[in-house]
Design a protein around this nucleic acid. Sequence first.
DNA 1: AGACTATAAAAGCTTG
DNA 2: CAAGCTTTTATAGTCT
Length: 270
Amino acid sequence: MVDLNRLRSELPDKYSVRENFPGLVYKGGGQRKASGTVLLFSNGSIIITGEDNNEIIMRILGDVASDLKSLGCQPREDVGLRVVNSVAQFRIRRPVDIALFAQSTPGSKLDRSRFPAVTWRDPQTGCTIRLFRNGAGVVLGSGDQAKIKQAVYNLYGIITKLGTSQTKRVNTSRTHVISAEGDGKEKKFYWVVNNQVGEGVDRTRLTELLVRLFGPSISKTVMRNLDILIGEQQQYTLKEVGQVLVSLLGEAPTNAFLDRLRRQADDYSL
DNA sequence: AGACTATAAAAGCTTG
DNA sequence: CAAGCTTTTATAGTCT
């Protein structure tokens, strides 16, 4: 049992309440970007979201335990973590006719006026996939990586049978898995990109160029991936930008591709 | 640049 | 008795 009222009244800056919600909300990481947010309940259950690293999760839980101890409580030490959900990202190598997918695939629905992705529940794994026309997608509803990958392969099987689609292959090697845990925790798997020194591209101008080339949404995604894969910087090398674009577009990082990128960057006086 | 659209999941309390 | 509330996260659209 946890005395939530005491925690809230004694440490109001750290533990907050929400209207119509019985849990206490604790922001674990302060200014850190990937800080876990903890939901504490009266029976001692804890939900952690927004953090994928088990060590950080245990540290955050330790912080909460310290606060409880400072109030004279004795929190249990044998904390068990269980993954209850996750958000996994994948990309296939071709645009997908999501309207055709929706009309020919049972268990799918699409309402482009509300959201630009087709939603499909994989009956085998129980995972829900949201697939976008550019081949990007997310897998929801499971923390089990094997099931997540299987769901993507099942989806791929449907897409390849869809008319004349020539989708090449699923890049599950590039799948991020971000899982939320009841009792809390999350996992994230990133593929590694070499960080090389070179001529820098200014962050602001790069953003503007990406908006011009791909539109605001894609630009946002590319910048976010740059921040995650390379690290948030004011300047990126063309090679780094190329690597991230390549990972998103599923194309090989040819010199021609990088030259094209460089020319367009020059045209935009980067 | 940010909010909102939609999705899954857990917790436990409130509302219809 | 089920549904909504709250939190997070990826994805990509529209709109302010």
